[in-house]
């Protein structure tokens, strides 16, 4: 409407004066955000301890020896392997639970939607530290054998990731016209199985991939439950290795951070592209 009455945008012309404040905020926040990353990178990759660092040394003794020490520690591979296995198991469990449930909600029982949605928000009200207290309260007395297995973490990790995975898959289903796809497939003579695996799944590829990535990063970083239940997962290893060799542990943290950020960045990019094509918005981020 504005455009009809007044086609020229009439926002106050932003003089450089009026931008001083915002620019200052941007610079301060930017520095606060980037500086810890820089100091972490320096500590990880430069073999000069901070108290001895002088201006003239800035470009000297950069090396990967810290990360090498961390990777060659005997505790590293078992911890990483455990976390990767937990991640794969959590991804599988999440997809197995959420895909059928959400397809059913979209196709057959839209009335159940508020209930399911509310359920997926509960993990915010019950944060990980309360959940792990619940694990101690309920599973310790009733199913101790269950907690003895490292894989007992899987269902709880699926719960922690639920708000995000639900959102990702839900957005994916919304972005395609499920009903039409099903009708088309069925009227062409495909059975339910064929419809599901040859028609729906390929169209939900992006949703499946993004929810899997989200699950993966949640599991690879989860510290609360693993720490309290004394499971030797990857973050737990990083944490313990710090007292052994701070530089190596920090280097490990640096590379883990870069890897997860890269993965999520890629996912963000692809989801945005899909949204632009389908004209939807995904607000997992």
């Amino acid at each position: 409407m504005d455009a009809v009455i007044d086609p020229a945008p009439t926002r106050r012309p932003s003089t450089w004066r009026s931008r001083i404040g915002p620019t200052l905020v941007l610079i301060v926040c930017g520095l606060f955000f980037v500086l810890p990353m820089i100091t972490m990178a320096r500590y990880s990759l430069q073999n000069i301890i901070t108290p001895l660092l002088r201006w003239e040394d800035v470009f000297k003794k950069w090396s990967l020896s810290g990360i090498k020490a961390a990777v060659s520690d005997p505790g590293f591979w078992p911890a990483l392997k455990l976390s990767l296995e937990l991640a794969v198991a959590t991804v599988a469990l999440t997809l197995l639970l959420l895909l059928p449930t959400l397809l059913l909600v979209h196709i057959k029982v839209p009335k159940a939607r508020p209930l399911i949605e509310f359920t997926t928000l509960l993990p915010f009200m019950i944060p990980p530290i309360a959940l792990v207290a619940g694990v101690a309260a309920f599973f310790r007395p009733n199913a101790k054998w269950f907690l003895n297995s490292n894989f007992s973490l899987v269902p709880f990790y699926a719960i922690l990731a639920l708000p995000f995975t639900f959102r990702a898959i839900d957005a994916g289903i919304r972005a395609i016209d499920v009903r039409t796809l099903i009708d088309a497939s069925r009227s062409l003579g495909a059975g339910w199985g064929r419809t599901l695996f040859r028609v729906l799944m390929p169209n939900l590829k992006m949703a499946i991939v993004s929810s899997s990535f989200l699950t993966f990063t949640v599991v690879m970083g989860e510290f609360t439950i693993a720490q309290t239940l004394l499971k030797r997962t990857y973050p737990q290893f990083m944490y313990e290795f710090y007292s052994n060799r701070g530089q190596g542990a920090t280097a490990l943290a640096l590379f883990t951070f870069l890897a997860t950020t890269a993965v999520l960045g890629l996912m963000f990019f692809f989801v945005r592209r899909r949204d632009r094509r389908a004209g939807t918005t995904t607000t997992v981020f």
Binding site: P110, P128, L160, P163, M220, E222, T260
Partner: peptide
């Protein structure tokens, strides 16, 4: 929580624009 904890709480919580839509008839 986790290292790379929850992916922005933002609209996840209120079911921002993405969630509300009409239950696809």
């Amino acid at each position: 929580g986790p290292l790379l904890g929850p992916y922005a709480t933002v609209d996840v919580l209120t079911g921002g624009p993405a969630a509300g839509g009409a239950p696809s008839a």
